[in-house]
Design a protein around this nucleic acid. Structure first.
Lengths: 194, 194
DNA sequence: GTCTATATTTCGATAGAC
DNA sequence: GTCTATCGAAATATAGAC
């Protein structure tokens, strides 16, 4: 007895978000989105009257908010221990389609307005940076780590973990999760034997 | 007294490569490339008769070959020492526009033929993997490191270093180079104090 | 070699039937 | 709510003048 309207709209937003974040703004057409949910592209305007640009902004915003919330909760669930916190970060990131900040900045943002672009990029960075930096600051106070730029460290961690999506051979979801934790171990313990 | 024809063609290929690798296939129009070198888009067909698709394939191939050569030579120039070798890798990667394997796989490759796509992706992976793995194998033999998957490690290193391009504040070239070496240190020594 | 002009296709978007 | 039909803009590509 759910409202079918909201169900369909949610399917639309989910599909659009997946396609936009994977392939970028220009590569995804409204016809692509429509056919992915079994609908003519003209019908999308019933759910997204603002058109493609507005739809992109809305779903990417949603994407960033979900990342921020998901990362925050993941870290919180692993109370205290840094390694478990970063495992949780890895688990979250591996479960999501990868975000390419460089492409977003160079290509996607040129197609929406300048103020919108600035706002969206800040949201994207904050979604990743802030939850992770919180954990790193705690670990720094505890004397566990000593990094001279937590912003760089946080973005480095994100980029490192997202490399699971770049590995040529297609590993399954379970294996990808294990690789995610392996990458965290690499970063915490270092490659060099001792 | 250089041949002006080849000069112009080189400028075209350089520009196209930069735009394609930064923004992806769909986001770059022939008009973008043309206006970047001060030419009408129709004139590009004199230098690239195969059109946009062929041009993309040609310049990305060139990009991958240059990466493979550049990485190999960078590593060779730093004879022996692993840390210096990885500094050299970082120096090379930071000097180049970042390559997004995920976007290439999800978006760009769908627009060219399937066989071409497979061949290009393999070239891209090999360009990064093979030179780096060579250095890692040497270090493994020397007993310096002990990693259970060098493919994953190599791609992780690439992804980690490329995160310098994702840092919000725009650092200059010199500073980026320093961040590149910092990231290598992170990966070799690990975050955890000892 | 580079241009203008134009053909063809594809895309975003609107109007209106049902 | 979803469709068909269609418009205007923009993109790739070709033809031909200069």
């Amino acid at each position: 007895m759910e409202a079918p309207r909201n169900e369909t709209r949610k399917r639309l937003l989910d599909t659009a978000e997946d396609l936009f974040s994977k392939r970028g703004y220009a590569s995804v057409t409204l016809r692509d989105i429509g056919s992915a949910i079994g609908m003519r592209h003209a019908s999308l305007y019933y759910y997204a009257p603002g058109g493609k640009k507005q739809l992109y902004i809305e779903v990417m915003e949603r994407n960033f908010l979900r990342h921020r919330h998901g990362l925050t909760e993941s870290i919180k669930a692993a109370n205290g221990d840094l390694r478990q916190q970063l495992y949780a970060v890895a688990g979250w990131l591996v479960s999501q389609p990868p975000l390419d900040f460089s492409r977003m900045h160079e290509a996607d943002m040129a197609e929406i307005g300048q103020e919108q672009a600035k706002r969206l990029m800040e949201m994207a960075y904050d979604a990743m940076r802030i939850p992770i930096i919180t954990a790193l600051e705690q670990a720094t106070e505890d004397g566990l780590i000593e990094l001279d730029d937590l912003n760089i460290a946080a973005m480095a961690l994100v980029s490192l973990i997202q490399s699971v999506h770049n590995v040529p051979t297609h590993y399954g979801f379970e294996l990808r999760q294990r690789i995610g934790t392996k990458l965290v171990d690499m970063l915490l313990d270092g490659w060099l034997k001792r």
